[in-house]
Structure formats: structure tokens, C-alpha cells
Design a protein around this nucleic acid. Sequence first.
DNA 1: CTCGGGATTGAG
DNA 2: TCAATCCCGAGC
Length: 184
Amino acid sequence: MLQKKEFYNQSALKVAQDLLGCFLMRRIGNEIIRTKIVETEAYEGLRDLASHASRGKTPRNAVMFGEPGLYYVYFTYGMHHMLNVVTGPKDHPAAVLIRAVEPIDELDLKTNGPARLTKALQIDKKFNEFPAFSKKSELWIESGEKIKKSEIISAKRIGIDYAGEYKDKLWRFYIKDNKFVSKK
DNA sequence: CTCGGGATTGAG
DNA sequence: TCAATCCCGAGC
């Protein structure tokens, strides 16, 4: 079942946890690659210094201020694409970064990290502003396994040491003991 | 230790 | 138009 647009119209913290266990689906030609989301991070609002939206609306981050359920894909460090899904109501800038997925069919895909998964699934900036709630995107999200609260670990987010008081927020979530989580 | 890789951004 | 920025592996 596709996750509906309303699923994303909640706080990033809620969506980040609810996305664990969901299926991230990618169609390339006639092939459909199925993966399960195992690690996410929440970027919530204008005050979160780790978020691209913390300095206001710019051409790059404009999609974060728009409708929930759209992808925010950006290129960084001169080499990496990052896949996010916009959350919350319109005009509230927030998103969830998908950090790692578990491949279901092609077990040798390297998807244990935000840059690795976009490379493995051939995700680039053309997906920016595409909807996660439509198969027309050729990249969509379906409901999946229900993950128990006791299986969800909260941790500090990765690579945001510049974010002041926000760098220690436990806004990274992953499935306990899952081998495809990017770090321990 | 320094540099490169690149899009993004704000300053000049 | 330019310089700073983000991270980190390669090269000195």
C-alpha cells in the first residue's frame, strides 16, 4: 500500500520513526527494486541549525517549505546525493533524511549510508520535488513492517557538528541490530 | 598538512 | 564575480 500524502503531514520526528520498516521502491525500466527503510534523521523547523532551512527560504531548500510528501534531493561535498522527504504542513520547513535501507531482493546492493543508497538506487537531483506518494515518480514509499517501539533506537545525528545546541538532539532513528544501519 | 571535488550562498 | 563552506580520502 502506498503511503498517502497525509502520512507526511506530521512532525518530522514522527514521520522519521514511522518510516522505519516502510518499503522504499525504485523502478528502473521494467525492474523494480524493493528496499526497507532502516535508518532516518529528522530535520525540524526553522530553528534546527542542522537543517538547510535554518537560514530561511532559498532556491535550493524551497521544497522544504512546500507540500508534505515531496522529495528533497540535494548534492553535497562535491560527490554525494542525499534523499529527504518533506514533512509537516505547508510553510513549515521540515524533512526526514533517509540514511540507510535494506535491500530485499538484490542483497549485494550497498545501501548502508545516505550517499551509498542514492548511488545504488540511481537517485539524483531530477527526483527533487517528485512525490513519494505516487508510483509515477518511479521512486515511492509503501507501508511495511510495523516496528515495535522497543526496536527503535534514538541517537545523535551524523555530520552536523556545526549545529550548536542542536547537534546533540536524538533525532536519528534506526532499527535495533539491523545490519544495514550506517554506523553503530 | 594540504588539496580537491561542486553546488550553494552571501558578500562586495 | 569571488570566497567560504560542507567532509574526507589521496597525496606529499
